[in-house]
């Protein structure tokens, strides 16, 4: 498939991204660079100086709502991409309402409990929807531990083990790798070339 064909196929697709931190902001930018037509982004947070070590934001965006900052960055790269923003701390009902009409959903939350919430919500209420989650990305190095796994309609990117803590922070390279693995998985699904290996369910 050539670039024009890829962009043509992606132009009619809509992807939902739950959370606009390190995973969500980087994943969004990767997808729109490929020609994705529509994004639905949701986050309640504002851009903080401490986010700039890994999240796709800039000094002049400090203090802005992350959804607004990300929308303006996307417009500066791909002005034709439609971006729907939701300034909200997502709860189960919001996830169904906001992302129910998306082709694919990306889980890009920070906390394990929120990851659990969206996985169980999508499995129970949006069972036919594919969800791409990022689990295990703290620290540095250990490239070969980062992997992708499929469990039914759930795709898991990351090492599935290393948790962010004071002594094991989230840093740009591993966060960026996992965010781009998620974007890469979205492309594979949207372009209908996903393989069925690793899918016993």
């Amino acid at each position: 498939m050539d670039t024009a064909c890829i962009r043509r196929q992606l132009a009619s697709k809509k992807v939902g991204i739950a959370g606009c931190g390190g995973l969500g902001s980087n994943c969004a930018v990767a997808l729109i660079r490929c020609g994705l037509g529509s994004l639905v982004i949701a986050d309640f947070d504002t851009v903080d100086r401490s986010n700039l070590n890994r999240q796709y934001y800039f000094q002049e965006q400090i203090g802005m709502k992350k959804v607004d900052a990300l929308k303006s960055t996307i417009a500066a790269i791909e002005p034709d991409c439609r971006v729907e923003v939701h300034d909200v701390k997502l709860r189960p009902d919001d996830i169904v309402r906001i992302f129910g009409h998306c082709d694919v959903i990306v889980e890009a939350f920070d906390h394990a409990r929120e990851k659990e919430m969206i996985i169980t919500t999508v499995m129970e209420k949006l069972a036919d929807k594919m969800l791409i989650t990022g689990i295990g990305l703290a620290g540095y190095g250990r490239n070969n531990e980062l992997r992708a796994e499929r469990q039914g309609n759930l795709f898991i990117c990351g090492d599935q083990g290393s948790e962010v803590s004071a002594d094991n922070p989230a840093l740009a390279p591993r966060v960026g790798i996992v965010a781009n693995m998620q974007a890469n998985q979205v492309l594979e699904i949207l372009l209908n070339t996903e393989s069925d290996e690793n899918n016993p369910e």
Binding site: G19, G21, G22, L23, G24, A108, F109, D110, H111, A112, R113, K115, E116, I119, G134, I135, G136, L137, A138, Q151, G152, L154, I156, Q160, G161, S162, E163, V164, A170, V175, P200, E201
Partner: peptide
């Protein structure tokens, strides 16, 4: 049976 046990850890 096919059983899945997924560990959730923070970071994103």
């Amino acid at each position: 049976d096919h059983v899945t046990v997924l560990h959730l850890v923070s970071g994103g």
